[in-house]
Measured scan of single mutants.
Amino acid sequence: MTFKLIINGKTLKGETTTEAVDAATAEKVFKQYANDNGLDGEWTYDDATKTFTITE
């Protein structure tokens, strides 16, 4: 399955995708991506669209 991450950061904005077997796996990938890029914010997830959002 394809999951999307929408980034609404103070300095970084955009989106990225990952292929994962489930939402929990995708969340780990996206949280590592956010950590690697210095993002810290509030996370939301929409199961209907398989989309995570981080807002700083």
Rank of each mutant, 00 (worst) to 15 (best):
I6Q: 06
N35A: 14
A20M: 03
I54T: 02
F3I: 02
E19L: 13
E42R: 11
E42C: 08
V29T: 12
W43G: 00
L39V: 12
T2E: 10
I6D: 03
E27R: 07
T17S: 11
F52Q: 00
A23G: 05
A24C: 09
E27D: 05
V21N: 10
D47N: 09
Y33G: 02
G38K: 12
N8R: 11
G38E: 06
K50R: 15
E15F: 11
M1E: 11
K10E: 08
A24R: 11
G41P: 02
Y33V: 05
T25C: 07
M1G: 13
I54R: 00
T18M: 11
A48L: 13
E27N: 06
T53A: 05
N8A: 09
N35W: 13
L39G: 02
T16E: 08
Y33W: 15
Y33I: 07
I54V: 12
D46H: 06
G14E: 08
D47W: 08
D36Y: 08
K4H: 13
E56M: 14
W43C: 03
T51K: 03
V29W: 14
V21W: 12
D22I: 03
T11H: 15
A23P: 09
T51L: 03
A26V: 02
N35M: 15
A26G: 02
D46V: 05
W43R: 00
K50F: 10
G38Y: 07
N37W: 15
A24M: 14
N8F: 12
T51C: 06
F30M: 02
F52M: 02
K4A: 05
E19G: 05
D46I: 04
G38P: 01
K13F: 10
I7S: 03
V29H: 15
T51D: 01
T16N: 05
D47G: 11
T44P: 00
E19T: 13
T53K: 05
T18A: 08
T53C: 06
F3E: 00
D46E: 07
I6F: 05
D36K: 11
G41F: 04
E56K: 04
T18L: 08
K4I: 13
T44C: 07
T2Q: 13
K50A: 06
V21C: 07
E19F: 12
G14K: 11
A23H: 09
T44H: 10
K4M: 10
K50Y: 10
K31D: 02
D36I: 09
K31R: 14
L12A: 12
T16C: 10
F30Q: 00
T16G: 04
F3T: 01
K4N: 06
D40H: 14
T16H: 14
A23V: 12
G38Q: 10
V21R: 07
V21G: 11
V29S: 06
T51G: 02
I54E: 00
Q32E: 09
I54H: 02
E15K: 05
G14V: 14
L5G: 01
E42I: 14
K13Q: 12
T2D: 07
F3M: 02
T53P: 00
D47I: 09
N8S: 12
L5R: 00
T44Q: 11
A34Q: 03
A23W: 09
D46N: 11
L12G: 11
K28S: 11
A23I: 12
F30Y: 02
V29D: 05
D22F: 03
T25F: 08
E19W: 14
Y45E: 01
T18G: 03
K31W: 07
Y33F: 13
T44I: 08
A20G: 04
K13P: 06
E27I: 11
A48Q: 11
E27M: 09
F52G: 00
E15P: 05
Y45Q: 01
K13R: 12
I54N: 01
L12F: 14
T18W: 06
T55L: 05
T17L: 12
L12M: 14
A48P: 09
D36G: 05
G14S: 14
A24L: 12
T16S: 07
E15W: 11
A24T: 12
